[in-house]
């Protein structure tokens, strides 16, 4: 019973964070709302039995990625202080599309018969590690390569000699 209420509360927080992340004018508030949303997502991960991943989510997403985003906000100098003007057509258009998308997805959910839940499963770290290094070793190596390349790429892009005119 209590788990249900907490579940609903956490889902609400997540969605609230998401809504704030897209609608607030100040982009810094957006970043902070993103962090809120990600916390909610981490709790949902725990509900789904992926504790390790919840911790990873917090460390990586919130601890690294969101901080990087905030860095970028700060470094893009003139902009984070400016507030965007409203463009009603654009808002209406995006709202329309997003709403219909949601409706479509809901309809699909309702009309499929999902298999019955069974809650046994071995989601220990040992199992994950084993899977990573045996069945999914190729994507594992590939992802590490991607990360390497991303770092090199970021260095190259941002290390270019162009200096902004003062």
């Amino acid at each position: 019973m209590i788990t249900e209420i907490v579940f609903l509360f956490i889902a609400g927080i997540t969605l609230l964070g998401a809504v704030l992340a897209v609608s607030l004018k100040n982009v810094f508030y957006n970043a902070l709302s993103l962090i809120l949303c990600l916390f909610g997502v981490a709790c949902l991960f725990i509900y789904l039995g992926a504790e390790f991943l919840a911790i990873m989510e917090v460390i990586i997403y919130i601890g690294a990625i969101s901080i990087a985003i905030i860095f970028a906000i700060m470094l893009s100098r003139p902009m984070f202080q400016k507030y965007e003007k409203r463009d009603l057509i654009k808002i209406a258009r995006s709202l329309f599309i997003a709403a219909f998308l949601f409706l479509g997805l809901l309809k699909t959910l309702h009309s499929t018969r999902w298999p019955a839940a069974s809650l046994e499963g071995d989601y220990s770290l040992r199992a994950i590690g084993k899977a990573l290094l045996t069945t999914s070793v190729l994507p594992f190596e590939a992802v590490s390569l991607v990360l390497l390349i991303a770092i090199i790429g970021a260095l190259l892009i941002s290390g270019s000699k162009e200096r902004p005119s003062q």
């Binding site: 654009k90 258009r93 599309i97 998308l101």
Partner: peptide, 20 residues
């Protein structure tokens, strides 16, 4: 970019509804 994206996603939504 956003105009292109909205066009693509709009059509995607229509396709989803059709598939349903």
């Amino acid at each position: 970019l956003q105009d292109y994206l909205s066009m693509a996603l709009g059509v995607g939504v229509v396709i989803i509804f059709y598939l349903i």
